[in-house]
Amino acid sequence: MDTLTNLRTFLKVAESGGFSAAGRELGVATSVVTKRVDQLESSTQAQLFVRTTRTVTLTDAGQNWLNRVKLLLADADDVMSALTDSQEGLQGPLRVKMPTTLTILYLSDIVARFQKKHPKISLEIVLTDRPVNPAVEGFDVALGAFGTSYKDVTDFALCPLRRYLCASPEYLASAPELNHPKDLQNHTTLSFQPTGNNWAFEGKEGPVQVTVAPSINANEAHLLYTCALAGNGIAILPEYLAIPAFRDGTLVNVLKQYAPLDYAIKAQVPAARVLVRRITSFISFLQESFRPEPPWLRERSLSDEQLSDGDPSDR
């Protein structure tokens, strides 16, 4: 039994959603695909797929196995590609998790330039805004701005990420008084689901927290940005959305003396994979792309006084 071939077949069935589709992509008969999966199920003593006349779906065991198989096959590909990288350039698969809005606005250009530089690397980009442990979920790299760290995962810093409390002039014109974060409980709020409804600020007197009851709770920042622009309420937005809106006056930085806690954008890599050349090259490319500052700040026209009260370093 060729275990690696059978594992690749399992992965292809899971990705394509069927034995026939997997066979077409692999260039083999459906019966060959079935035989390979049967061999895996026999050797593992576990059913990997639920098969009906119309659908093929992963069992719980198959789902739990999926990400481990991806990492195992990636490691096998690394061993083989290491022999040819020096002569033919970097090659092999690279599976990356990226945040949705940031990728659409800025990171997609970085990905495009990296792909052009390394055309033999096969990129799989997954957009999601929740925290992801790359070692558990089968990613080579996970990008995000959450403070979460994981065992056996190495963090690579890219840049700080400031956040701002934002509202439109239209909303503020008829809104209740707002002098302190506690006043937000009397306002319509728009909340980013992954960070929760307990909003934390840093003021001159120290940290302040307030629990809001949002009218919109979304897991994607651009939706909150759009609702804030429409005058639907107050949102905490990352600087790559807030700063352009401050420049054109469509949003206002409110409660400047109480800054939402800053985050940091970082790339996380399973510790066992930090020396894989295509991964280290991608990390280096990301870091260079964020120097000397991230792309949304390079044409900055706002002064620090427009964004915050006092010296920005006090934040």
Rank of each mutant, 00 (worst) to 15 (best):
G62W: 08
N219P: 15
A74H: 12
E202I: 10
L275H: 14
T59N: 14
K266A: 15
P295I: 10
S303T: 15
T103Q: 03
D75S: 06
N6Y: 00
P270N: 00
S174M: 08
S43H: 00
S303M: 09
V208L: 08
R278K: 11
V210Y: 11
L107N: 13
L302P: 12
S301A: 09
T57A: 10
S313K: 05
V28N: 01
Q87Y: 03
N133I: 01
T100K: 09
W199I: 15
Y106Q: 07
P93E: 05
L184Q: 11
R162A: 05
D129Y: 04
T280M: 09
G147Q: 06
T30L: 03
S43N: 00
L107G: 07
Y225I: 00
F139P: 04
T148V: 12
A76I: 01
N217R: 10
T100N: 07
Q209W: 09
P294Y: 05
D109M: 05
L4V: 08
E288R: 15
P294I: 03
L261W: 04
E124S: 13
R277F: 03
T34M: 03
A14C: 11
T53Y: 09
A61G: 01
E293P: 01
M1G: 09
V111F: 15
N186E: 15
E205F: 05
K70V: 13
A264N: 10
G233L: 06
G92P: 10
T57Q: 11
H180V: 03
R273E: 11
R273I: 02
T211Q: 12
L73V: 10
A242W: 08
V132I: 15
F282E: 04
T34H: 08
A82R: 09
A76S: 12
S20Y: 14
F285G: 10
E170M: 12
N232V: 01
A213R: 12
L190F: 02
T3D: 00
H222Y: 02
L223S: 12
I265R: 09
A135I: 01
R8T: 02
V56P: 05
W199G: 04
P99A: 04
L229V: 09
V37M: 01
F114R: 11
N198T: 15
S16C: 15
S168V: 05
H222L: 00
N64C: 08
D304I: 03
A228E: 05
A235G: 04
K266W: 07
Q87K: 06
L90T: 12
P294K: 06
D85T: 12
L229M: 09
T226R: 13
V208R: 06
I216K: 12
N179A: 14
G23E: 02
L307C: 08
L143Q: 06
L11N: 05
A228Q: 06
S215F: 02
I265G: 03
V32S: 13
N197D: 14
Q91F: 01
V254F: 06
S122F: 09
G196Y: 10
R278F: 04
V56D: 09
T30D: 14
D155Q: 10
V32W: 01
P181W: 10
W296L: 02
A245F: 03
Y164G: 06
A167Q: 10
Q115T: 13
E239V: 04
D304P: 08
L286H: 13
Y106W: 11
F139W: 03
V69K: 02
H118G: 14
V208D: 01
V276D: 06
N6K: 01
F146Y: 13
T148E: 13
